[in-house]
């Protein structure tokens, strides 16, 4: 069976040391000010009136129905069979149509490569049988990565034994493959995905240009097919009338 890679983040174990961010930036040599993963802090007041800090390590959620893949004009954004969403940098134009499409803000234009950067679950490392850099370096062992299709894998066992949540809402439920354990606490709205947006240009192609083009070209073909059929029918009629006249004479 093909692997299905997932990432688990046990927020009760995360100590916000940001070693995952450092490891990721070192692994991928990301420019200053940019990172493929992040740790989000959300402050709140709990039921007892005490201040509380929740910590959510995040990255690309490698969604099953990834809108970044669907909106990419060149196919540079693509999804492997094992669920990892990747960017083919040879064909990526850096048009950024995918950037607002991601509800998790996981994509950004790399000023050095001029192409889109995002978490790849450290695909070259996992293809070599290694763990992603962030998982490898996680001090609190809060990040767990593995194949959910392997019933003996750590992630499969953990998914069965603990109650995990995903960052989904009624509006945005695109099958993220990143799970969070919060010990029953509700995930704060600040961490939840935003409604995916599109650049006006992308929306124009999808909602105006393509439908009008399809209707227009389809309509023209139907009209001229009709005209051709009419011409053929008229011609047959004309020939048979001529033959009838010839027989009468």
């Amino acid at each position: 069976m093909v692997a299905k890679y997932v990432m688990l983040a046990d927020t009760t174990r995360c100590i916000n040391c940001k070693a995952c961010e450092v490891a990721c930036r070192a692994e991928w040599d990301t420019p200053l000010g940019y990172s493929r993963d992040w740790v989000k802090e959300v402050e709140s007041v709990n039921a007892k009136g005490m201040p509380e800090l929740q910590i959510f390590p995040g990255r690309c959620q490698h969604c099953d129905d990834a809108p970044c893949v669907e909106v990419c004009p060149t196919g540079a954004s693509w999804k492997r069979e094992d669920g990892i969403v990747l960017v083919d940098h040879d064909i990526c134009s850096g048009c950024e149509l995918c950037v607002p499409a991601c509800p998790y803000d996981a994509r950004w234009l790399n000023p050095v490569t001029n192409t889109i950067s995002k978490c790849t679950f450290c695909q070259p490392r996992i293809d070599k049988g290694l763990q992603p850099a962030c998982v490898e370096t996680c001090v609190g062992n809060a990040l767990i990565f593995g194949d959910a299709n392997d019933p003996n894998s750590e992630v499969s066992i953990l998914l069965k034994t603990k109650e995990w949540q995903r960052l989904i809402t009624d509006e945005v439920n695109i099958g993220p493959n990143h799970y969070y354990y919060t010990a029953g606490k509700t995930i704060p709205v600040e961490v939840m995905p935003k409604l995916h947006e599109r650049h006006l240009a992308g929306k124009s192609i999808e909602s105006i240009v393509n439908p009008l083009g399809t209707i227009g070209i389809g309509g023209m073909m139907a009209v001229f097919l009709g005209a051709g059929v009419k011409k053929l029918v008229d011609r047959r009629k004309e020939v048979s009338e001529k033959e009838d006249n010839h027989e009468h004479h």
Binding site: G94, C95, E96, L109, P111, A201, S204, I205
Partner: peptide, 20 residues
Amino acid sequence: TFSTLALYGELFRWALVIHV
């Protein structure tokens, strides 16, 4: 370098719309 000026990317996206 698209990251230096947002207009470059905006032009690219609209160029695609006009092209198609």
